[in-house]
């Protein structure tokens, strides 16, 4: 079979071009206009848009639905899918449903724990983990079969993404985990927000040495900081985030009204460095609820026009 999805993101990455993706968080409601507005802000500036799946365990419009709204606007979505809320039956069904709607990219995640969300009393599922989900999507594409081995009529052929966090512990295991995700079927990786570029370099060096950067497309995650408060919050309160003290000091050192500008400057410096690193094939801009800045970041970085 060996069918592969043929989206723009895959095409750009397989040509060896530098990819740009961004993120769109669906609204806490059923208003599709909100999704379209976010889509408008991103259109033309990025190759694909990640649509989160009830991120931070807060109930929102489903990723599949929001992806579909973006598709209708001519944007290419990356459907994020977490294993927190659905068992393997629902996951596989939604993958097939999504593909039938024209969604060709998926990002396989475990998901934020429900205790961080608005409904901590919910039952979590975690029937399978993100590694198992990657393998499931790959088996559907490569063998045309579901998890039971049943031959599917029109198997979904998704371009498969996974996440990596070079800043979480234990550090020495992070590359082993990356290798496992690639073996399981990941075609591309989107990383956690990069602020500690030295640690990122160390991680990707280890990945290069294992030959992993030849097997997978790594997109470095960036999130522009808006204030010293935000930098501190991300460092102290967001699990798995590493904002070096020097960066916090730098943004705290400028007048308040200059902080946003300084944050964007830091973001540009990070992007410039990422483009120089062997094995980095693109960037993933996570401007949370600040989609209007994405175009400016991409333009400023000299990454326009998009292919």
């Amino acid at each position: 079979m060996n069918m592969k999805a043929s989206g723009k993101l895959q095409e750009i990455l397989s040509k060896g071009e530098f990819a740009v993706t961004a993120e769109c968080g669906p609204p806490r409601g059923a208003n599709s206009e909100i999704v379209r507005k976010k889509g408008e802000l991103l259109k033309g500036y990025v190759d694909a848009v990640n649509v989160t799946d009830n991120q931070t365990a807060i109930v929102r419009m489903s990723s599949i639905a929001a992806c579909t709204h973006l598709l209708q606007m001519g944007l290419e979505p990356v459907m994020q899918m977490v294993t927190r809320d659905r068992n393997r039956i629902a996951l596989q069904s939604d993958i097939m449903g999504a593909y039938s709607l024209g969604i060709t990219n998926i990002l396989c995640l475990s998901g934020d724990h429900q205790s961080f969300g608005s409904q901590p009393d919910a039952l979590n599922v975690f029937d399978i983990d993100s590694m198992n989900l990657i393998r499931t999507v790959q088996t559907m594409r490569e063998q045309g079969k579901d998890m039971s081995g049943f031959e599917l009529k029109g198997p979904p052929a998704m371009f498969i993404g996974a996440a990596a966090n070079p800043f979480a512990d234990p550090f020495e295991y992070r590359v082993i985990r990356l290798a496992k995700k690639i073996d399981a079927g990941a075609d591309f990786i989107q990383t956690q927000c990069i602020y500690n570029i030295d640690r990122f370099k160390e991680w990707i060096k280890m990945a290069r040495e294992e030959g992993l950067t030849e097997k997978v497309h790594i997109l470095g995650g960036v999130t522009p900081l808006k204030s010293a408060g935000m930098a501190k919050f991300m460092n102290n309160k967001v699990a798995g985030m590493d904002v070096p003290e020097s960066l916090i000091k730098r943004i705290a050192g400028v007048p308040k009204e200059e902080a946003v500008k300084e944050g964007l400057k830091i973001c540009q410096e990070t992007i410039a460095q990422l483009r120089e690193i062997k094995g980095v094939h693109g960037i993933h801009i996570m401007a949370i609820e600040w989609e209007e800045i994405v175009g400016e970041i991409v333009e400023e970085a000299g990454l326009l026009p998009r292919p």
């Binding site: 998901g111 724990h113 983990d129 979480a168 512990d169 234990p170 295991y173 798995g240």
Partner: peptide, 29 residues
């Protein structure tokens, strides 16, 4: 592991502790 992960720690494991409860050891660590 709060997420019943079978294939390694999630991205929230820091300093050997679980993101869900900083008093709980990360099982994967």
């Amino acid at each position: 592991c709060a997420k019943k992960l079978l294939n390694g720690p999630c991205g929230g494991s820091q300093n050997g502790k679980c993101e869900v409860n900083p008093e709980t050891d990360c099982a994967w660590q």
